Amino acid sequence: MVIAATLKDIAQSVGVSLATVSRVLNYDRTLSVSESTRKQIFEVAEELNYTKLKHRASSSAKQLKIAIVQWYSKTKELDDLYYMSIRLGLEKRCEQRHILATRSFQNDLQAVDTDVDAIIAIGKFSQPQVEAMAQLTPNLVFVDQDQLCHGYDSVVTDFQFAVKEVVDFFWQRDQHRIGLLYGTEWTTDGELEVIDPRYKAFKQEMMARDAFDSDLVFAGDYTNHSGYQEMQTAIAQLGDDLPDAFFVTNDPMAGGALKALHENGIAVPERVKLFSFNDTTIAKYVFPELSSVHVNTELMGATAVDMVENRLQTGRSTPQRITVGTELIQRESTLK
């Protein structure tokens, strides 16, 4: 059974006030709180959404060793809980299977043991980075990046279908002018610019309906601050022509966009409706709560571990790609 986290649960676990938890989860940078406390609040918020393991059995068999390579730094991971959630799901599966899992952040391969059985890489990586990991072990699994064409197992999300569902959601409610806030970023070595696949899917879907308007599209960097800044820009540029609906491609940016709308006296959902993506803990701790595309990040992490076990146990050499489906979760930010 999945344990539903509340602000009170988190506050009691960390030993801080309800107000502190609320302000941290809403990215209130004016709050004076240590980075370690902030980190603990985010981690507890995510962990309380997972099943608690009652015991850890011992095994006499040779213990597998998996290195988790997270492309985000520890600090940046807190700003986008999507990747933290994948990592926690992955580590939970390793614990269930009695697999030794070690972590490295910001693609730090120097921290990876040379005798690991496999590497599970979370995030986006350039080809030189992929080749560097392949030097450590041929058993690579990529989560949230499709590396099938390069011969590696991959676990991805169906962005195309999810975005179509969001557009359909608004379309069925006669909201045909849909704004977009999306993200773009680079791999840690600066070699590969990663364009948001949801932007491509959104543009394709809207063009098919003869409704794509580049003036309603704004690019950020997936952070809460960029969501705030880009919505401020949209409000300033569009004025009364601000669309009635916005699709925002991750929860931190949606939270920032929500703040900008509040500050400008623009009511959500009465004047502008927001639909976010990923459905991390943040979506449930802002006001109004965010409608969001739910991505089963725990399953993505667990599936990556399953693929490693399958490859090592069967000797499989043919690469596989597993696509994890999504679900639209409607909350207050899109209610009539």
Rank of each mutant, 00 (worst) to 15 (best):
Y83C: 06
G89I: 06
R56W: 09
R97A: 15
G89R: 11
K76L: 15
R93I: 04
R97P: 04
L78I: 03
Y83I: 14
A45E: 00
Q40G: 04
D79H: 04
E46P: 12
S58Q: 14
R93K: 11
I99D: 07
K92V: 04
W71Y: 08
F42R: 10
L88P: 00
K76A: 12
L88H: 06
N49M: 14
Q106P: 02
L53I: 12
E95Q: 11
R103Y: 07
Q70C: 13
Y83D: 03
E46R: 14
R103D: 06
S73E: 05
S73Y: 09
R97C: 14
T102R: 00
S85W: 10
Y82V: 05
Y83A: 01
K65Q: 05
F105D: 08
A45G: 02
K65E: 12
V69E: 05
Y72W: 15
K62M: 06
K92Q: 13
W71P: 01
Q70E: 11
Q106D: 11
V69F: 04
A45Q: 05
W71M: 03
V69M: 05
L64D: 08
N49R: 14
K52M: 10
K76Y: 09
K74G: 04
I86G: 06
L90H: 07
K52E: 12
Q96V: 01
Q63S: 07
V44Y: 10
A61Y: 03
K62I: 02
S85G: 10
V69L: 05
I68S: 08
K76V: 12
K74D: 07
W71I: 03
E91Y: 15
F42E: 08
E47N: 01
E95C: 12
T102N: 07
E46M: 14
F105G: 11
I99T: 00
I68H: 06
S104G: 07
D80L: 14
A67Y: 09
Y82F: 09
A101C: 12
I68M: 11
V44Q: 14
E43R: 11
K74N: 09
T75S: 15
E95A: 13
V69H: 03
T75C: 02
D79T: 11
F105I: 05
K54Y: 07
Y50F: 13
Y83G: 00
S73F: 12
T102H: 07
Q63N: 10
F105M: 01
H98Q: 14
R93M: 06
